[in-house]
């Protein structure tokens, strides 16, 4: 039995339109302009992943919300859970870029990191 999938690659801005066929022998991908596309398609079929980006609150009025992202990709179905969790995070000191706001966010093994240098906004 052959299963066919169509999808848009989100690895880079090129946005290749991928076709993937899953058979007993494995997954065959076409339409990708680079190997990362094939890997993306396979993952997308087996265990799709996404990065989360958003904000968390801080105690500083100069910067009421602070941008964060997952340091890597998390399972796609965890994204909403991470988004909900960010509601309860409150930063009480000035973080720098890349500092961990929440480690192992929602048990994904991936950290939630701050992506702006708060010290530049609120002074140190």
């Amino acid at each position: 039995m052959t299963e066919t999938f169509e999808m848009i690659c989100i690895v880079c801005p090129r946005g290749c339109r991928l076709k993937a066929e899953r058979t007993a022998d494995g997954i065959a991908v076409t339409g990708n302009k680079c190997p990362r596309g094939a890997k993306f398609a396979e993952e997308e079929i087996v265990a799709p992943k996404r990065s989360f980006t958003g904000t968390v609150r801080s105690v500083f009025p100069e910067m009421p919300v602070v941008p964060v992202r997952t340091a890597g990709e998390v399972p796609k179905d965890k994204v909403k859970e991470v988004a909900l969790l960010t509601r309860d995070v409150l930063l009480t000191r000035a973080y720098g870029v890349g500092e961990v706001a929440v480690d192992n966010v929602c048990g994904t093994g991936v950290d939630l990191i701050v992506t702006a240098d708060m010290r530049k906004v609120i002074g140190s």
Partner: peptide, 25 residues
């Protein structure tokens, strides 16, 4: 622009907007 996707070509990383800006700042 708190979303990511910035810098894939230049830095080979998927950065958020503030992160990308921060390197230049």
């Amino acid at each position: 622009c708190v979303h990511d996707g910035f810098g894939v070509i230049r830095f080979g990383e998927k950065l958020s907007g503030p992160e990308y800006a921060d390197r230049f700042i």
